[in-house]
Design a protein around this nucleic acid. Structure first.
Length: 554
RNA sequence: AGUUCAAUGGUGUAAUGGUAGCACAACUGAUUUUGGUUCAGUUAGUCUAGGUUCGAAUCCUGGUUGAACUACCA
């Protein structure tokens, strides 16, 4: 009965391939370079590659594209593995491009033997100069016509470490006048006397991306090699190597990378934010990294649902961060335990409640979950309530406290505001009200109906915690597209620390990564910075607030 | 300027020559012991000019706009 979900262009290609019998089983791969942390864009690619394998009963490899020893580190490998698992995916095989260095070397020799590759002694500058430009064909290098034997010997000498970095390169012999600059005799091997995170000092020559990626796909019999749009110009080269090497014909398909409003996504820019201390690290809760979002309190399910809803296509895009937040709220609404916390406290004194009396009230943990159970919350004469829940001169539709106004205290009683006290600066210091004993939650016989319910924390029962409120990292929707440096658009108020928030006692038992909804205030999670004596909560996302909207209009 | 790719409500994404749909956002209203949730509803779109066709978002041609490509990065 359910409406059939439409296919994206890759699913269509796959279904056609499967139907035509081109493949019995599809095989995809997620191929990160271990030179940084994964972000929401990678999540999109992970969800795509692993999701396709799952949907079509295929396989998906994790392959680290580690062909540049100077940028890659084991630390990144570990974080990438961890993030993928956290997102809920398991790879069929874990491979490294560096596993294939010997094979890749042999492929290069094959190309030389076919007269399709040569060693070039030109400097980097000379190569760039002879490359031509978008409108000018390039010129052949003087070393282009060396004999096969000479090339073989020189390439072997390169491997043996006879030359310094930059002294020689191996180039594919294609066409220096090709309109696609990438086919103007691309460099396929370069000399780097550098320590590799896995192969150590075994090699001093390393294959370039173009000479490693397609061949790695081919070695692994990847059927659908999915990458982002900027590699579209590489596809002819990808195909050329496979054709000339006569190896398993993997195919490359490109989709548009996922951009989000109010953030940046390029690794280079994210690295700058980290290095220049605009954020506390890769896992700063404001970062669009998987680790940052996890710390912020986003759930893996929310991220997966987001990726699913946003879909994929081939056009440039920038998705509203609000869509991600929607799925975070949707997931957390179903699962997060409710609790009460007063961020900006002011005291409410219930004048007709006995001085020494306290009560243990039972309040539901999650109204969305019938089996969620209840918790005990202490109640007494003096309560903390939110400063913004009281107004001296309340407007028409203000359903909170003000002189003469009535509200229900969540899970407790209905109170009427009678009086309030101010200091010499006009700040409210105390609010006084009286309660109706017969209006107790769950056994209300008062017959009174109130429009508003507010949260509260009993003063003698309260614990304290630090709360970190996050706003968007940038002031503009698309910082990367703005004039000038993207960093000039950083929102300097993206982190607001509230050092002492009044929380209900049950929150003292919170554990890192646990999700809560602080009633009426938003979703929060315990930050790893917390200790036994000092609790720190991150605000994951606010609740939707139609009152705030109403006020904005006024 | 060359090459390549793309263009559907504010945003993202469907419709595969035959009723332009879905989600988010926005806006109404109802329900609500969270101004949350839930429910009902409203607004809003095929870049442009031609062509093919009984019929075009879809195919063709021109234009416009955007993106990518000139790293010994991936």
């Amino acid at each position: 009965m359910s409406a059939e979900k439409s296919l994206n262009f890759l699913e269509e290609i796959i279904e056609n391939d499967l139907a035509a019998g081109t493949y019995q089983q599809i095989h995809t791969r997620f191929p990160p370079e271990p030179n940084g942390y994964l972000h929401i864009g990678h999540a999109s690619s992970i969800h795509l590659n692993f999701g396709l394998a799952l949907k079509y009963n295929g396989k998906c490899n994790l392959r680290f594209d580690d062909t540049n020893p100077v940028t890659e580190e084991t630390e990144y490998v570990d974080s990438i593995r961890n993030d993928i698992k956290w997102l809920g995916y398991n790879w069929d095989n874990e491979f490294y491009a560096s596993d294939y260095f010997e094979q890749l070397y042999a492929f290069a020799q094959t190309l030389i033997r076919k007269g399709l590759a040569y060693v070039d002694d030109s400097s980097s500058e000379e190569i760039a100069a002879s490359k031509g430009d978008l409108n000018t064909p390039g010129k052949n290098a003087p070393y282009r016509d060396r004999t096969i034997e000479e090339n073989l010997a020189l390439f072997a000498a390169m491997r043996e470490g006879k030359y310094k970095d930059g002294e020689k390169v191996l180039r594919a012999k294609i066409d220096m006048a090709h309109p696609n600059l990438l086919l103007r005799d691309p460099i396929i091997y370069r000399i780097k006397h550098a320590h590799h995170h896995r192969t150590g000092d075994q090699w001093c020559i390393y294959p370039m991306y173009d000479f490693a990626h397609g061949q790695s796909d081919s070695i692994e019999h990847i059927t659908h090699s999915i990458c982002t749009l900027e590699f579209i110009h590489h596809r002819p080269l990808y195909d050329w190597f496979i054709e000339k090497l006569e190896i398993y014909p993997s195919h490359q398909y490109e989709f548009a990378r996922r951009n989000l409003t109010y953030t940046v996504m390029s690794k280079r820019k994210l690295l700058q934010l980290v290095n220049e201390k605009h954020v506390s690290g890769w896992d700063d809760p404001r970062m669009p990294t998987i680790s940052g979002m996890r710390r912020r309190g986003y759930t893996a399910a929310a991220i997966r649902n987001f990726c699913d809803a946003a879909g994929i296509a081939k056009r440039e895009n920038i998705v509203d961060i609000g869509l991600l937040e929607h799925f975070v709220r949707e997931d957390l609404n179903k699962t997060a335990l409710r609790a009460m916390a007063v961020l900006d406290p002011v005291k409410l004194i219930i004048t007709n409640y006995p001085d020494s009396k306290t009560e243990e009230l039972e309040i539901e943990n999650n109204p969305e979950d019938e089996n969620g159970g209840k918790r005990k919350v202490g109640f007494s004469k003096e309560l903390w309530i939110e400063r913004e829940d009281f107004m001296e001169q309340p407007p028409k539709k203000f359903f909170r406290l003000g002189p003469g106004l009535q509200v229900r205290l969540k899970g407790a009683y209905i109170v009427t505001c009678e009086d309030y006290k101010k200091d010499e600066n006009g700040n409210i210091t105390e609010i006084y009200g009286s309660y109706y004993p017969e209006s107790k939650s769950g056994q209300d016989t008062s017959g009174i109906h109130v429009k508003g319910t507010i949260h509260w924390v009993s003063v003698p029962h309260a614990k304290q915690a630090e709360v970190r409120l996050y706003d968007r990292l940038f002031k503009v929707e698309n910082p990367a597209a703005e004039e000038g440096n993207f960093k000039s658009y950083i929102n300097e108020n993206s982190l607001q620390i509230v050092p002492s928030v009044q929380i209900e006692a049950s929150l003292a038992a919170a554990i890192t990564g646990q999700h809560f909804q602080f009633l009426r205030k938003g979703y929060f999670t315990l930050d790893p910075d917390s200790s036994e004596t000092h609790l720190v909560f991150n605000r994951t996302v606010t609740l939707k607030d139609s009152w705030a909207k109403e006020q904005k209009k006024a």
